[in-house]
Structures are given as structure tokens and as C-alpha cells.
């Protein structure tokens, strides 16, 4: 596979600089990420990888504008991020992200119209185009509750892509799918990327998925989330599963992620 292209010269599309994110629970204030920095370039399939509790989902919500950083800054095309907006479309893990009162087509048309980007007729054309891209052209008028999990996720992806956002934010979009459907969706996502060349920020806890889907991987450590490494994975896709090179990288990442745990368990012995 090719090296990532930098569409907009060498200037990053999304700049995240030393961002610390905190959220409140009933009992305490949790620091989810601590001084996390990374740059996403146009056309990147940028993966945030880490175990649960490493703040990768919180990081994504921060970029989405749902959580304001306590320190550091996030800039999209040089503009600071304030609040959620349709230039950063989210694809969630949950199947209930679709509005049950709208059909597949209406679900995709809704943000196009409500953001004032298009009129009804134009939005319908756009919706049908992306319904076709995610291979749902047989079901434009179906209601979400009649679709399978994989089909719902496709609608979620089509809805986000139809908006043609600056960056797609995907929060473990395939985690709730069965293994066979997940694999198929990963392949389709890569095909779509080949076709449209969108920019995506992708959160996952699966090392294999990160290597297959991403071209650049941010490995994060937990409690609080900090950057452990930023690695290249543009060489790998489904055909490289089991290849020595990929296994080597998988092993390297696994060691990075589990090194903490070993240190933690060893601490009492030294103390």
C-alpha cells in the first residue's frame, strides 16, 4: 500500500497539543487524558489504540467538541474547536445512534438538511449516493429496527460520510458486531477510503483492527491516557494477517501496552 498522502501541503488537518481532558463522575473528578499530542493529516486513517480506561473514547469526544479540554488546545484547519458541529461527524459504537422514527434515507438526509447544507432534493440525491456506496441500495425506505447490526452501522457510516465532514470520528464502530461482519465492514471501510479518501480518526482496543484499518497508530497507556508511541501501519491490510512483519509489530504494541501492568505488579516487590 502507498504512503499517506498529505493533501493540504504538509500542514496537519487536526492538531492536538498537550490536551488534558477531565470529566466528573458522582464521586470524583477523573483525568481521562494527560498532555496528549498528535497531528492528523488529510487522508489519514488515524487510530487511537489502547486498553479500556486509556481515555481514547474521551479523546475522540474531545475532538468532537462534547468535552472541553482543561489544558492544551485542539485545532481543526487552524481553528480552535468549540463545541460539537457537523464538520466533525461521529459514528458511534451503539446501534441506537440512528433515529428510529426515520427511514434509512431520512436518517442520512436529516443532518444534511438541518445543518442548512442542502435542500431536500439535493440531500436526497446525496443520501442515495452514499446508500449505494455502503451497499444498502435495496433498503432506502426501511426503518432502523428492521435492519441487522451491520446494516445499522453502515447507515451510521453513510450518514456521517454524506455530510462530507473535514474528519470522520469513529468510536469503536465495529465493536458490537460479530467477528465475520466486523471483518467485512473493515474491508468495506478500506474500499470506501480508497474510493473517497476521507480523513478518519478511529478508536479501537483491538491491535489487529488498528493495524488493518489505520495507516498511523497512536498507542495510549491508561490512567490517565498518555501517548506511548505513534507508529506507522500503512503497509498492512487483511492480506497481511499472519505475515511476520505484522506479527512483529503486533508483538511490539502488545509489549508496550502490557509493560505497565508488569511494572505495576512488580512494584510491591521492590518496595
Amino acid at each position: 500500500m502507498e504512503m499517506p498522502r498529505h493533501g493540504n501541503g504538509d500542514k496537519p488537518l487536526l492538531e492536538v497539543k498537550e490536551v488534558t481532558l477531565q470529566y466528573k463522575t458522582k464521586e470524583s473528578l477523573v483525568t481521562a487524558t494527560y498532555k496528549v499530542s498528535f497531528d492528523v493529516y488529510q487522508g489519514d486513517r488515524f487510530v487511537l489504540l489502547g486498553p479500556s480506561g486509556c481515555g481514547k473514547s474521551t479523546m475522540l469526544k474531545g475532538v468532537g467538541g462534547f468535552i472541553a479540554p482543561v489544558a492544551g488546545e485542539m485545532r481543526l484547519r487552524g481553528r480552535a474547536i468549540h463545541g460539537p458541529g457537523p464538520d466533525r461527524m461521529m459514528v458511534f459504537q451503539e446501534f441506537d445512534q440512528l433515529m428510529p422514527w426515520k427511514t434509512v434515507k431520512q436518517n442520512i438526509m436529516f443532518p444534511l438538511i438541518s445543518s442548512g447544507r442542502m435542500r431536500a432534493k439535493e440531500a436526497e440525491q446525496q443520501a442515495l449516493k452514499y446508500i449505494d456506496k455502503v451497499k444498502l441500495s435495496k433498503f432506502p425506505n426501511a426503518y432502523p429496527h428492521t435492519l441487522s447490526g451491520g446494516m445499522k452501522q453502515r447507515v451510521g457510516i453513510a450518514r456521517a460520510m454524506a455530510m462530507e465532514p473535514e474528519i470522520l470520528l469513529m468510536d469503536e464502530p465495529f465493536a458490537a458486531l460479530d467477528a465475520l461482519t466486523r471483518r467485512k465492514m473493515q474491508e468495506e471501510l478500506l474500499q470506501l477510503w480508497d474510493d473517497v479518501r476521507f480523513t478518519v480518526l478511529f478508536v479501537t482496543h483491538s491491535i489487529e483492527e488498528a493495524l488493518i484499518v489505520g495507516n498511523r497508530i497512536l498507542v495510549m497507556s491508561p490512567h490517565p491516557g498518555q501517548v506511548k508511541a505513534e507508529l506507522n501501519a500503512h503497509e498492512f491490510d487483511h492480506t497481511s494477517i499472519g505475515s511476520p512483519k505484522m506479527q512483529q509489530l503486533q508483538h511490539r504494541i502488545r509489549e508496550m501496552l502490557f509493560a505497565d501492568q508488569i511494572e505495576q505488579t512488580e512494584v510491591p516487590r521492590h518496595a
Binding site: 468532537g64 462534547f66 460539537p84 458541529g85 457537523p86 466533525r88 461527524m89 461521529m90 458511534f92 451503539e94 441506537d96 445512534q97 433515529m99 428510529p100 422514527w101 436529516f110 443532518p111 438541518s114 445543518s115
Partner: peptide, 29 residues
């Protein structure tokens, strides 16, 4: 109303009355 749907609505840039009419009322129907 599920937090995912709420976030979807805000992601679309909906606020105030439009948010209530187009997201909350149908979702709580």
C-alpha cells in the same frame, strides 16, 4: 432519551427548540 441520540443531535449542530422538536420529542414519543 439515550445519550447516543442526544450526542447525534448535538453533532448535527441542533440547539434549543429545534433540538427538542427534532430529537427529544420523537425519541421520547
Amino acid at each position: 432519551v439515550s445519550s447516543t441520540l442526544r450526542m447525534c443531535g448535538r453533532n448535527y449542530g441542533l440547539k434549543g427548540l429545534r433540538y427538542v422538536l427534532q430529537i427529544l420529542i420523537p425519541a421520547a414519543f
